[in-house]
């Protein structure tokens, strides 16, 4: 899990959630950050724009923490790169 990716995800979430960046750590849960379901779809929208990926609804529902979010984004970005290279 690269620090750069963690930082980018945290920045997107801080901006979408209107909270200070320093309140977000890799171990923060959405509950601790007071991210509810409506905040969640806003954050997913912002992350999709930032990383140019599609986050499926079913996968998104399982995500409850920053670590899970970064890990999910990492997989989607890797899959996208692999498919771009394959082309």
């Amino acid at each position: 899990m690269s620090q750069e990716l963690v930082d980018r995800v945290a920045q997107v979430i801080a901006k979408a959630q209107h909270i200070p960046l320093e309140t977000i750590t890799i171990d923060s849960t959405f509950e601790e950050l007071k991210i509810d379901s409506l905040d969640g779809i806003n954050i997913l929208f912002a992350l999709e724009s930032e990383f140019d990926v599609d986050i499926p609804d079913d996968a998104a529902r399982q995500i409850k923490s920053i670590r899970e979010m970064v890990s999910g984004i990492e997989k989607l970005v890797a899959a996208k790169q692999a498919s771009t290279q394959a082309q």
């Binding site: 779809i41 929208f45 609804d57």
Partner: peptide
């Protein structure tokens, strides 16, 4: 779609 409540 962006509300993420519609079934696939």
């Amino acid at each position: 779609e962006a509300m993420r409540v519609v079934s696939p």
